[in-house]
Simulated scan of single mutants.
Amino acid sequence: MGAATAVLIRPRAALVLGRVSNLPTVLSNALAGIALTGIGLAGAAWPPAVLIGAAAALALLYVGGMYLNDAFDAEVDARERPARPIPRGDAARGAVFAAGFALVGAGVALAAVPGPAALLCGALLAGAILLYDAVHKHTAAAPAIMGLCRLLAYLTAAAMAGGDALGTALLLGGGGLFCHVVGLTYAAKQEAYDRLDNAWPLAVLAVPLAGALWAAMAAAGAAPLALVLWAALAATTAWAVRRLFRRAPGDVPRAVAALIAAIALYDAVLIAAAGQPLPALIAALCFPLTLALQRIVPGT
């Protein structure tokens, strides 16, 4: 698996393994999960500890899951993606497994602090992450499992904030996020080959666009900020889909990276539609921040 077998995990490899450039979208997920419970409406302040705790728990689960993704995929990556840290020798597989499980465990422990409901949601999220990492190379259902992970991120943040993790707005918003992630994960599965064999599954990307537009239009005063953010989401999705259809060299990874960053825009639309402009702007800023960080650390 590489020449540098004495190395546990090199510093840059730690960042690459965790896909840390995508962490702003985890923050936007936490913001949306809390906002869709109604917390913070009518000018009420968000307790900082609530947002910090939820974002930290989701970040630990995300990074831990990405570590385990590479650890489980080490043999496949040695053939298809030899530049990944483990086959390259920049990280020992055993150390990556240990770090991944430790981070996921820490994320669940942090999620458990507010109470049983948050613990349940965090545990379900951890289970979905482990399921994806273990079987995603062997099942066509992998995109759906990944979509479930992001849906459960909403629910975990909501439960940690003391909100109803089964609220209608939360489940509808999470359903749209599920569809967005299913579409981008389908495309990402073709990334190693830099091609897209079938384009029709990308139709699922229309679901979050339609749902987000409905939320923006249904908001009081048609929520101008929500509509502007929706336009940015639609433009980004269209740009990415065009490149997936074009299939020129490098188009698939660029499109996937853009769709990952667009998660923050989707979150921002829902937050703005919920009448919370400041958190919506913070979530929206996570979009360019993710794109900028992806230039330093690959997001896929």
Rank of each mutant, 00 (worst) to 15 (best):
R12S: 07
V16G: 01
A262M: 01
L285P: 07
P201K: 00
V297E: 10
A56C: 12
R12V: 11
L170P: 03
A32D: 01
A111R: 11
G175S: 06
A44I: 08
D90V: 08
A257P: 01
L278N: 09
A91F: 07
S28K: 08
A272K: 01
L60P: 13
Y67S: 00
G122T: 10
W239E: 04
T139G: 14
L27Q: 00
F97I: 05
H138D: 14
G18T: 00
M1Q: 13
R81G: 06
L172F: 01
L225N: 01
Y193F: 12
R93D: 09
I263L: 10
I86E: 00
A117H: 03
I260T: 11
I145L: 13
P249V: 07
D90Q: 09
L227D: 06
H180K: 00
L36N: 03
A232V: 09
D70N: 12
M66H: 11
A257N: 10
A238P: 02
P85I: 04
R93Q: 12
V135Q: 08
A153T: 05
Y186I: 13
G175M: 11
D73I: 12
G38V: 12
P11Q: 09
F101D: 09
L291M: 08
D251I: 10
R195C: 11
R84F: 04
A226N: 05
A158C: 05
